[in-house]
Design a protein around this nucleic acid. Structure first.
Lengths: 192, 192
DNA sequence: GCAAGTCGTTCACTTAAGTTAAGAAGAAAC
DNA sequence: GTTTCTTCTTAACTTAAGTGAACGACTTGC
């Protein structure tokens, strides 16, 4: 399991034995059952997550309705805005499936960053890369219709459509579950 | 003008006289007329931008139609995805108004970062902050209707609505200019 | 000063998403 | 094994965005 983490890190910096041991022995590996809530609205958490196996999602509770805005699967990292901004969280984070992940505190990260400048560099690279990717996703979302978004998702993350409930997918696509059903029926009809 | 840049930097790290001089004497300050295109689709640019005065926008050309996805005004920074990913740019960057900005090359930044670890830290903080902010914006976009988005924008960046042409605002809101006109008329009617 | 182009608005019509309600299929609870 | 809950789908109706066209107000260029 730890190998997944090291593989991920090695995309950015190369670690020495010592550094790998320091990370490997840190108490950050967790496993959580499907449905477990990792972060609640209003909490002041300092925890970041990195998914080793499984899937977690972020969602808002607006008008007592869940609005899912993101999914994180294998090899994806999430640092919630409340950690960066030191504010109470606006949203929930929960497990879509049984999930194995790392949970790391921002104080701990700050300490590691000051001890190993290598991590500072990795964090910068990772944030920059995520920001760039995120911008592209946002742009694609803005410039396309719900139907196009669904077709894009089918291309880019086909696994999500299988492993995630439709109503969560729908709000991820910015529409209601009924619209997603209809839209899927429409696409099937076009194909034939 | 340079003070704006230093004020911005000081939000993240404190600079020594030497460091300020190093930056101040760098040849990065530019001014560009309204309509100037800073980056074209297909270009392999390494330039990042920081707006000192004025406004720039990013837009895609899809089906020979401009799709504006972002505006950057005073004290805002843009590193296009093509710089991070070392790929040809998918979009254009152009000046909405006469603009004064800094244009800095990523090679130059890498050099500065390795010379002054302070900058590395600043870049990480900035990217993390931007990513968090961006996530919140994206989430707000996903979970709201065009009308709500317009009202949000009216709250959060009222200046944009004044300084930017309606048709650019419309595609920024993910709709057509006609829909924005209609939507505005609808809101006015509700108020009365 | 005039012509050409740009920009914003309005209108009529089409298309698709929101809403409300109902029902079928499957999973979880007892 | 039956009940209950959740999930997904379908349908009828409402609402709002997309489309195509037309018009007036403003620039921009000559």
């Amino acid at each position: 399991m730890k190998n997944i983490l090291f593989d991920f890190i090695s995309k950015y910096v190369s670690l020495t034995e010592d550094e790998m041991n320091a990370i490997g022995s840190a108490d950050i590996f967790r496993s959580a059952k499907k449905g477990t809530i990792l972060l609640k609205e209003g909490q002041r958490s300092k925890d970041s997550y990195f998914v080793l196996k499984g899937c977690i999602r972020t969602y808002y509770l607006l008008d007592s309705e869940e609005k899912t805005t993101a999914f994180y699967t294998e090899m994806e990292a999430l640092t919630p805005p409340c950690v960066v901004n030191k504010t109470p969280s606006d949203y929930y984070v929960s497990c879509v499936e049984d999930t194995i992940l790392t949970v790391s505190n921002s104080d701990m990260e700050a300490e590691i960053n000051s001890k190993f400048p290598k991590f500072e560099i990795m964090c910068r690279m990772l944030s920059e890369e995520l920001l760039a990717k995120h911008r592209i996703d946002f742009d694609a979302f803005k410039t396309s219709s719900p139907e196009q978004r669904y077709l894009n998702l089918l291309q880019s993350r086909p696994d999500l459509i299988q492993r995630v409930p439709q109503h969560q997918l729908a709000s991820y696509l910015g529409i209601k579950p009924q619209s997603l059903s209809r839209l899927r029926a429409r696409i099937l009809e076009k194909k034939s």
